[in-house]
Structures are given as C-alpha cells and as structure tokens.
Design a protein around this nucleic acid. Structure first.
Lengths: 130, 130
DNA sequence: AAGACTATATTCGTAATGAATATAGATGGA
DNA sequence: TCCATCTATATTCATTACGAATATAGTCTT
C-alpha cells in the first residue's frame, strides 16, 4: 500500500480485487454489513449482477479481515441463516482515505486520456473540413 | 467487447490488460509506434516505470495484432536494432471509440464513489460539532 | 416434507501477471 | 578490435487472480 501512481488497475498492489475492496470499505464505513447483504450496496455503486461474482465477494471479505481492514462476528437470531457481519476497523478507515486519494488521481488520468482523445478527433474534423 | 457496465477493472472482458490496450490505441491513433518507443507515451499517460512491465507491453501489442486492432511491420535502417512498428486499424479506431464511452462511465462511477465518501465525512464532522 | 431461498465457503481449471531470462544487432569507448 | 552497454523484441516460468461450479446448511413457504 505504498504506490500512489496507478492508473486504472495497473500497478503494483493495485489489483482488480482492490476495487471491490474500496467499494466494500465505503459501504462498511459507517454501517456494519454481511456478505450477501452487501450485494445491494455494490449494485448501487455500479456492480451489475453479472459482473459481481459471489465467490470473489466472500473471498475478498475474508482477505480484508486478514489484512485487518475489517473484523467479523456471527450474528444469529435474525431471520434466515446466521450471518457473518463485518465491521470496518480504524485501519480500514485509514485505508479508505488512502484509496480515495488514489481514485482522485485515477479520475484525473481518465480525464486526461479522454481529453487527448477529443483533441485527436477535433484534428480529424479540422482536416476533413479543409 | 459487448459489456458496457464495468466499474474500474471489474467486469467480464474488462481485464487489466485492456487498460494498457486503450492507452496504446490512443497513442497509435494518429501516429505509428513501436514497443520500446511507446513507453514514453505511456509514462505521459501516467504509467510510471515500475508499474509498466515490458513483458506485458509486448505481449499486449501482439495480442492486439491478433485481435486486428493494429498491424505491424519491421522497420530497418534507422539507428539501433530494427523495430516492429505498429499501426492502428480502422477496427482499432472503432474499438477506441467504444472504450472512450466505457471510460466516461467509469469516471462517473468514481465520482459517485468519491461523492458518497465526502458525504460520510461531512456527517462525521456534523456529529463532532454537535 | 419438499422445494426454494438465504448465506457462507471451497475447489478447480483457466487466465493474467511480472520477474527473469534469452536473443541479437547497434553503439561507444579503451 | 574487443568488451560493455544499450536498444529492442520475445519467451519461459511460477505465482496470483478469477469465475464457474459445487458443497454445506439452516430457514421459510406451501
């Protein structure tokens, strides 16, 4: 978690799974949640059903626990099967803050790329008008 | 190349390598280029040296040729070793157009995520003031 | 009691990835 | 000339990431 300069997903320590992580951290930031129940929140953040793999979701949550970004405990008594409920840690909040900065940089770079592209398209138009 | 709804890197057919692809397509959009020489352009697009793997670069270019996004030919006679020079195809330009739309969506989602985060931070501040 | 649903977790094969290595011609200096 | 270095491309290899499928098990409905 030392690299600051990734675009998109490329770059050391910025694997794809990390993006699911940052969404999960955001959802857990002020409210506990459990695996299956987090799907709804993720879909709000743009994960459509067919791009969200449940294996990956659970795997990621367990990994985040290992990394001390969240803690979990079993919640029984409610309706349906018992749930493993996750809570964000202070460490997790710090990591979230860190991620937001990375995402801001990433956004800027996407904008740069789009800008470059529009520039090129403009040139093409200018040429075809000449 | 049918999915439109990926965030970040997640989603079918939107693997990490694709992001290198879109940057390469942009660089080749109006100017031919060769593997090693494209590194500079990539660094301008935010790829720092330690996040750009040369294996991946060459591998990606060859793959793009297989996908008919670019064509290549050997350029001899210049200084140094001969170069495999890549040129974007019409198909590649179309693919680039397609990607720009995906990136625009992606940018919007990053903004949404950042917005959500700022909202939470604001709540925290309000609470600590009360 | 059967079948559907909620919930979590693991297995397994494939794909993606980066480090390391291979190859080879070009260039520059001693 | 010889050696080191640089440019340039490509491949091998081991690890990691990933998603489809499967496993497990309790709950709810009818």
């Amino acid at each position: 978690m030392t690299e600051e300069h990734a675009i998109f997903c490329n770059g050391k320590n910025h694997k794809m799974e990390r993006f699911l992580e940052v969404c999960l951290l955001l959802l857990l930031y002020d409210e506990v949640g459990y695996g299956y129940g987090l799907i709804e929140g993720l879909s709000f953040l743009g994960f459509s059903e067919d791009e969200l793999n449940v294996s990956t979701l659970y795997r990621t949550l367990r990994k985040m626990e290992k990394e001390n970004l969240v803690t979990s405990s079993w919640e029984e008594g409610g309706p349906g099967p018992k749930r493993r409920v996750y809570e964000i840690t202070e460490n997790g909040k710090d990591e979230m803050d860190h991620w937001i900065n990375i995402l801001k940089g990433r956004k800027a770079r996407i904008e740069k790329l789009i800008g470059k592209y529009d520039e090129k398209r403009k040139h093409e138009n200018d040429e075809s008008e000449a």
